[in-house]
């Protein structure tokens, strides 16, 4: 669906189903240089299981208009505006990588809008090395190639997709190339400059789940465990997945996420 957020047309995938903002909403938050398609299988599965799944494209990403947002804090504020525009009062949120940093901000600073928060392949902060930042700024295709390489574990590197016939690496490359030029650099720079994760995590009171990847080179599992230690809550580790666990081992992400969401529904 398309809605207007802060004056720009914004696209949000609803998993192929009609969206009811009054239902049990699970809001997915995509990562750096990504868009709604990263969560393709998670939101399709949940949208067809009674959840109101919605994944917006941040401005300048996927099918959304506007300029990419410069900071994690501003992304969280934009997401709050998106929820208002979509008529969503309160949602379970799930972020991947940079999206998980945005989820930290959302859960801490817009706590009245968040029922639970899930953090996938993330940490309290995601420092980005100068080499990758430089590539993203000046040679974006090379940066995308590097991220595909570092972002995938063994399954991704042999192109052994759970969706028969598909290639993680090439699909991911085309997905990232479909964003506006410069979106990747803006995102990575926002991650790099975000340094308040520890304080923010300490302020979070909603139920949380961390889903970490054993082969993650972009947010190593040791950093992910520090995030979990700061948050408490539930923890799931996927041993053979790389950073792009949501596409590389999609069911290993969907299954614990669904279990967590269902448990919140029961408790509610």
């Amino acid at each position: 669906m398309k809605i207007d957020v802060q004056g720009h047309s914004t696209f949000a995938s609803t998993g192929g189903r009609a969206f009811d903002p009054k239902g049990d909403v699970i809001l997915f938050i995509h990562g750096s240089g990504q868009n709604h398609l990263g969560f393709m299988l998670q939101h399709r599965f949940l949208a067809n299981r009674g959840w109101q799944a919605i994944t917006p494209d941040f401005p300048g990403h996927g099918k959304s208009e506007g300029d990419p947002i410069a900071t994690i804090e501003e992304m969280a504020a934009w997401l709050a505006s998106f929820m208002d525009a979509a008529g969503i009062e309160k949602a379970h949120i799930a972020g991947h990588s940079q999206g998980a940093l945005v989820a930290l901000e959302m859960a801490a600073k817009f706590s009245d809008k968040v029922r639970s928060a899930t953090f996938i392949a993330s940490a309290l902060g995601i420092p980005v090395n100068d080499y990758l930042l430089g590539l993203a700024k000046d040679r974006e295709p090379k940066a995308i190639k590097a991220m595909m390489d570092w972002g995938h574990g063994p399954t991704g590197h042999v192109h052994d997709h759970t969706m028969p016939g598909a290639s993680h690496m090439h699909y991911g490359s085309q997905l990232m190339a479909s964003n506006v030029p410069g979106a990747l650099f803006t995102d990575l720079n926002a991650c790099n400059e975000y340094t308040t994760g520890a304080e923010t995590a300490a302020a979070i009171t909603c139920p949380t789940l961390c889903i970490l990847s054993g082969q993650d080179k972009m947010t190593p599992i040791k950093a992910g465990r520090k995030l979990h230690a700061a948050l408490g809550g539930k923890l799931v580790e996927i041993p053979h997945a790389g950073h792009m666990s949501i596409t590389e081992q999609p069911w290993d992400v969907t299954k614990p996420l669904r279990g967590f969401l269902e448990s919140q529904r029961v408790e509610a």
């Binding site: 042999v158 192109h159 052994d160 997709h161 969706m163 028969p164 016939g165 598909a166 290639s167 690496m169 090439h170 699909y171 085309q174």
Partner: peptide, 18 residues
Amino acid sequence: VAVLEQRLAALDGGVAAV
């Protein structure tokens, strides 16, 4: 067949093959 399709996608630089 899926192994073949994925090998073809990998070799030709495609996102998917049938």
